[in-house]
Design a protein around this nucleic acid. Structure first.
Lengths: 163, 163
DNA sequence: CTGCCTGCAAACTCTTTGCACGAAT
DNA sequence: ATTCGTGCAAAGAGTTTGCAGGCAG
């Protein structure tokens, strides 16, 4: 997505929600959608500040902007049960995505899981419920790490923090 | 599970881990495995104190005992992404269980999902990973609530708290 | 008697929020 | 000129932890 296109999208979504266009929101938006990996609110803040030559951006503003972007489907929120929320640019209408999380390097892989909607509908209807969302996560360990001693995927991701 | 059997199990697992048998641990253990619904650490504390006629039990001890019980497979930890951990007595070797969470009454239903292991193995091997655990969660809304205005399952569960 | 266990309170992490000032429309 | 957005700091929620005294083995 080009920067020009990105800016149009940005203003488009803000106007849709009746929100004002500010330098902070633009900086957060541009940094967020250019991310290649999953990121946390804190990582985003760090990168916004590194990239943005403009105004100072506070942590609070990042936390306030992230919901706006997810509600506009610009980002997708990914919860892997570590206590912190991850975000990733949302491309397409893929709702049936599972996460494979490497417990060694904390990297998150996104994999299609085309049966999720079917499963959600099936079990929900038996309970008198209407499904809203599904979440499927696989936690796994790195084979290479076990033999070589190094995880080939490590280092490309955010800082490791377990809890 | 009878109380006698329960006590044997309790001491068995503590000895396995080289831990001491204390009145607090016994009270927490007995209360936890007798729960019929999912519970949080705080709810467990409350119920331990209500049931236990013996020594005072502190919040810290409950938090320190829960991991012991999950590591011994006496409890199963259930994370539905609300910020707090839920626990439920673990019966059998069922690792292929999905959770259906009613967003209206916060009740958690546990449903068999026999394809989870297969899916986990399949996608993990493609990534050079070995699966350790799977988690599948369906978030849904109550049909009855929408028409009647009341959720028939509400009230049987823990206190509603969203975040 | 020795060392693990407990209770207390403080610390911690991630996130949200009240308030006053500043900026967008 | 309004009204919304921002930064700051404090508050929250759930959980963990350092320490000193107590109890199990």
């Amino acid at each position: 997505m080009s920067t020009l296109k990105a800016r149009e999208t940005f203003e488009h979504y803000l106007k849709l929600k009746g929100l004002r266009v500010t330098e902070q929101r633009r900086a957060i938006f541009e940094t967020a959608i250019s991310q290649k990996e999953h990121f946390t609110a804190d990582e985003l803040l760090e990168r916004v500040r590194a990239l943005s030559k403009g105004k100072y951006v506070s942590r609070a503003t990042v936390y306030r902007t992230l919901p706006v972007m997810t509600e506009s489907s610009l980002l997708r929120e990914v919860d892997i049960g570590t206590g912190e929320k991850f975000y990733t640019p949302h491309t397409g209408n893929n709702s049936q995505i599972a996460q494979v999380v490497c417990m060694d390097c904390d990297k998150i892989f996104e994999i299609s899981a085309p049966f999720m909607d079917w499963y959600g509908s099936t079990v929900s209807s038996k309970l008198g419920l209407t499904p809203v969302a599904q979440r499927l996560q696989v936690s796994a360990r790195c084979d290479t790490l076990k033999t070589t001693g190094t995880c080939p995927k490590a280092g490309t991701n955010h800082t490791s923090k377990k809890r």
